[in-house]
Design a protein around this nucleic acid. Structure first.
Lengths: 202, 202, 202, 202
DNA sequence: TATGAATGAGGATTCATTCAT
DNA sequence: CATGAATGAATCCTCATTCAT
């Protein structure tokens, strides 16, 4: 059931919904939230404007649905990676950053949106996305704090480093091009290294 | 007939022009390029819509004028700082990053624009801004390469570090709040430290 | 295929039809014909939009069905009252007006519709409603004319009084509130008195 | 200065504004508030849709401007007539009703609007119109109460008569046609007579 | 220098309606 | 009997821009 009030969707309906979400992701990514019209999105999805509103109740809602999904999946991916990384702070930090970076590079469109259009969300919607972000930030904060406590990291500003680190990784979208010299995997790995350097791992 | 196509501007004219540019900076910063209308900007500037067109030939031009000025001033500030820093790679890198960061924090609105609305510039205009950015990037690239050559920095990926470093600093705008715990000066200084950590300065 | 074009309706079908008509009456009453959408009506009726069209062939038809029914029942009620009132013009007029007023007050929504949305009916439909109204008007005209002929009423403008009288009573809807000080029965009775005053009954 | 925020209007501007208001009055009268689109109004006024919004800030505002003006002028006309009518309750009542009726017949479009579209006004706007109406009603209430006190009127329900009387007169719009047998002046005069009959003037 | 008047195109959204299931 | 999917046309309103004054 989508946010537009309706009953159980058919198979065709579900497919159409996905096409619309995909089209919106592309459109917002290319032109920004305000720059991408519903007309443009509908065209990309191959439907009429009116039919878009059978699946989504407003343009706002379209944006939030995309951002919400992205932030949840990214958080989940980071959390899972950390859980598998064992106890060593270095391993945990590397795993967190690599997973975070991997999500960024693999879902550039979602993250471009998240970085640049997030602020246009209505307050009510923004909260949901902020929470996911905060949970990731808190996780990394904690890893770094642990590392410092155990003497594995020597940075004098653990919290500031943590924030700047995630800022750096989230904004890989600002320069990464898939046809560039670095593969997604390499980009992610190197940023894991950068993270260790930033915290001054011993 | 825009300002550029006319004779010498009067003092009052110059003041009006500045009011318009300031208003546009605020407006774009709050709502984004597509989200801020000329009407909104004119209201902020306290003039009529039509009068905005006495100073700027189009909305595009308004954006480009802001971004061009910002990127030039930022580059100039970084260059000046580096020139005064002497020969030591560490001192030079610290000076470059601190100056860059300082500009970001002191001109948050300009840089928010630069980070998020830059992509909406027409190709022709974008080039001018890109050039300024590239010159800063090249300068930092060179400092880091020198440092590596002299054995002062041990990073195995000097170019990647350079790019990620500037990304991190440019996006301080994403989280910095003037009423937060850190002063602009502190934020800048710490990012200089982060830079040295990132390049693994000896 | 609308209800009219189908076989005998089921009991459940009849109930649904009534729910739709009730919902439409409410909706048109609250928002007017143009202001009430089929979506709104369907929601009130607790069905889908599409299902509304199983019972009514168009929005126009929905309005006409309501107005037609109302005007028929009102006319019937007035006629019945007059027939039971005997021969005295005063009694007949009082009975007519009281019955007419009673219908108005007891069916405010229908009459609000009738007073305000009637003009949006397509010509073809309007005729049916006009006929019912005209029959009531003619009946009252006749009663008053009789009264004048018999010397029971002294008004010099029998036809004008007749029209203004029914206008006054039909538009009770404009001010009557069920939670006001007057009961429906009282309102009706007083208007019967007003009618006698208007015709200057001896 | 119109409600749409602008500076001093030019002569041409004032003329355009009047054309728009006239067009809206006609349009709302013919099709009702919800039925008359801004497009339709603009066409009638001979301008573009966008230009309508140079003079009026919303469709709501267009309606309220019309209704506000009408109710004010009608009240003023009634008040003036009463003031000139001397002290005799009969003369005063006749004057009030005749003036009221005259306004109705002479401004049928305005009053059709007032009778049928008034309820679609936003609460905030409605209050202004209600006040004008209430003042007229209060004036007539008072005249009738005085007449009853002085023994000039014998109606047992002075307040109810007062309300039904004005209802009757306001809704002359429902049946009056300028090409009918009665002139505006005659219609008004007869309703003054009806008023005296209703209150049972001695 | 400054602004009111004007507009065509387009913004998001809702409309009444149809049809396959 | 009932409904989700779909649409073209229309809704109100705002857009960036021009021009005469």
């Amino acid at each position: 059931m989508t946010s537009a009030e309706r009953g159980a969707p058919t198979t065709a309906g579900r497919a159409m919904e996905q096409r619309i979400l995909d089209a919106a992701l592309e459109a917002f990514g290319e032109r920004g939230y305000h720059g991408a019209s519903i007309r443009f999105i509908a065209q990309r999805a191959g439907t009429s404007i009116a039919n878009v509103y059978n699946y989504v109740s407003s343009k706002d809602e379209l944006l939030v649905q995309l951002l919400r999904g992205a932030s949840q999946r990214q958080r989940a991916q980071v959390q899972a990676a950390v859980e598998q990384a064992g106890d060593d702070p270095k391993a945990r930090l590397a795993a967190a950053v690599e997973a975070f970076a991997r999500y960024v590079v693999d879902h550039r469109e979602e993250l471009t949106l998240s970085n640049t259009e997030f602020r246009y969300l209505a307050d009510h919607y923004r909260a949901e996305v902020v929470e996911q972000r905060d949970r990731v930030q808190a996780l990394v904060d904690e890893i770094i704090a642990d590392g410092v406590a155990q003497g594995a990291f020597r940075t004098p500003y653990p919290d500031d480093v943590s924030r700047s680190l995630l800022t750096m990784v989230a904004n890989i979208t600002a320069w990464f091009r898939p046809d560039g010299p670095l593969s997604p995997a390499e980009v992610a790995r190197r940023h894991a290294d950068f993270a260790l350097a930033l915290v001054q791992a011993v």
